[in-house]
Amino acid sequence: MNLDLRSIESKQAYKLLTGSVIPRPIAWVSTTSAQGENNLAPYSFFTVASRQPPALCISIGAGTEEREGTVKDTLANIKLQKEFVINVVPSSLGNEMQKSAEYVPSNVDEFKTAGLTPVESTSVKPPRVGEAPISIELELNQILEIGSDHLVIGNVVHYHIKDEYYLGNYKVDIEKIGILGRLAGNYGEITNIHRLPR
Rank of each mutant, 00 (worst) to 15 (best):
S20P: 13
S20L: 14
S20Y: 02
V21T: 13
V21I: 15
V21S: 07
I22V: 15
I22H: 03
R24S: 08
R24E: 02
P25L: 12
P25T: 09
I26D: 04
I26M: 06
A27W: 01
A27V: 04
A27R: 01
W28N: 05
W28D: 00
W28E: 01
V29N: 08
V29G: 02
V29E: 03
S30R: 06
S30Y: 03
T32N: 02
T32D: 00
A34N: 06
G36A: 14
E37H: 11
E37K: 07
N38A: 01
N38S: 05
L40P: 05
A41D: 12
P42Y: 01
P42T: 05
P42K: 01
Y43L: 04
Y43P: 03
S44N: 07
S44K: 10
F45R: 01
F46S: 09
F46N: 02
T47Q: 11
V48Y: 00
V48R: 08
A49S: 14
A49V: 11
A49R: 09
A49T: 05
S50P: 07
S50Y: 03
R51K: 10
Q52A: 11
Q52N: 11
P53S: 12
P53R: 08
P54I: 08
P54Q: 03
A55P: 15
L56D: 06
C57V: 11
C57S: 13
C57L: 15
I58D: 04
I58W: 00
I58L: 12
I58K: 10
I58Y: 05
I60K: 05
G61S: 11
A62I: 14
A62N: 08
G63S: 14
G63V: 13
T64M: 12
T64G: 14
T64Y: 09
E65S: 13
E65Y: 15
R67K: 09
R67T: 14
R67N: 15
R67S: 03
R67I: 10
E68L: 15
E68V: 08
G69V: 13
G69R: 10
T70Y: 04
V71E: 12
K72N: 07
D73K: 02
D73Q: 13
T74D: 06
T74G: 07
T74C: 07
L75K: 11
L75M: 14
L75D: 10
A76S: 11
A76G: 04
A76H: 05
A76R: 13
N77A: 04
I78V: 15
I78E: 03
K79H: 06
K79Y: 02
Q81H: 13
Q81D: 05
Q81S: 12
Q81C: 02
Q81N: 10
K82L: 10
K82Q: 15
E83W: 06
F84I: 11
V85C: 10
N87W: 03
V88C: 05
V88G: 04
V89C: 06
V89I: 02
P90C: 04
P90F: 00
S91I: 04
S92N: 09
L93P: 11
L93F: 06
G94N: 08
G94T: 06
E96N: 06
Q98Y: 06
K99E: 10
S100F: 03
S100M: 01
A101W: 05
E102W: 03
E102L: 13
Y103H: 07
Y103T: 05
V104G: 00
V104S: 07
P105C: 07
